Simulated assay, not measured.
Amino acid sequence: MRIVIADDHAVVRTGFSMILNYQEDMEVVGTAADGVEAYQKVMKYKPDVLIMDLSMPPGESGLIATSKILESFPETKILILTMYDDEEYLFHVLRNGAKGYILKNAPDEQLLLAIRTVVKGETYIDMKLTTSLVNEFVSNSAQDNGDKTDPFKILSKREIEILPLIAKGYGNKDIAEKLFVSVKTVEAHKTHIMQKLELKSKPELVEYAMKKKLIDF
């Protein structure tokens, strides 16, 4: 199994690489420090599995990069690695195509099991997440007209991409250049974001982005 590890901490990348390379059926072919680099490494190595950290400041977060990578490289199975025992993130990443969700404090054998599970196309959920959360996810997925108050449901992929850039202080022109769109397009998305989330000011937007862990304090 060819594996890429994406985490902003070098010690995590090194430690996990040692553990996985020790396995006879696993090889770490590349590592990345943020979402952009993760995309590049997946494009270069075409790994079977990408282990993706959700929060990777100051670069692009794993939450945003996951949807981009899955859209371009659907054959690569993504295993989310995170410290967040949070049902909202679990539901979001699984709905968007990630095959697994494991906490950073999981024992080594659980990580190995998770990798071997997702590479077969099956879904792996960290054992610490309760059965009720999984049942709720299955139930919600079957309801096309579910709760629309979830921001990940009412915001488009592009809006989720733009929101943290606004919160980090990038101007409209800077965002337009980063995403290769026009300034008017960015302004329109910004207006839609504020309206959909019922936000009235930039500080409220920043607070919202921090609450949803799209940016770090």
Rank of each mutant, 00 (worst) to 15 (best):
R2E: 15
R2I: 01
R13L: 09
R13K: 13
G15R: 03
G15D: 09
G15T: 01
M18W: 02
L20V: 05
N21T: 03
N21W: 13
V28H: 11
G30D: 14
A32R: 04
A33F: 03
A33R: 11
D34L: 06
G35Q: 03
G35V: 05
E37S: 02
E37M: 13
K41L: 11
Y45C: 03
P47T: 02
L54K: 01
M56G: 02
I64G: 00
T66P: 01
K68F: 04
E71Y: 08
S72D: 15
E75M: 12
K77W: 05
K77M: 07
I78Y: 10
I80C: 05
D86A: 06
L94I: 14
N96V: 00
K99M: 11
K104C: 01
P107G: 07
D108K: 04
Q110G: 01
L113N: 06
R116Y: 10
R116V: 04
T117M: 09
T117W: 07
T117R: 11
G121N: 05
E122Y: 07
M127V: 09
M127A: 13
T131A: 14
L133R: 11
N135P: 04
E136F: 00
F137T: 07
F137V: 09
F137M: 14
D144Y: 02
G146K: 10
T149D: 09
D150G: 00
S156T: 15
E161P: 06
I162H: 01
L163H: 00
L163R: 03
P164M: 08
P164G: 07
I166N: 11
I166G: 00
A167Q: 00
K168H: 08
G169R: 09
N172G: 14
N172Y: 14
N172R: 07
D174A: 11
A176D: 12
L179D: 13
F180I: 07
T185K: 12
H189D: 15
T191E: 15
I193L: 10
M194C: 04
Q195M: 15
Q195S: 09
Q195I: 08
K196N: 08
E198K: 15
K200C: 02
S201N: 10
P203Q: 13
P203M: 05
L205S: 01
V206S: 06
E207M: 01
M210D: 00
K212G: 01
L214N: 06
D216N: 10
F217V: 12
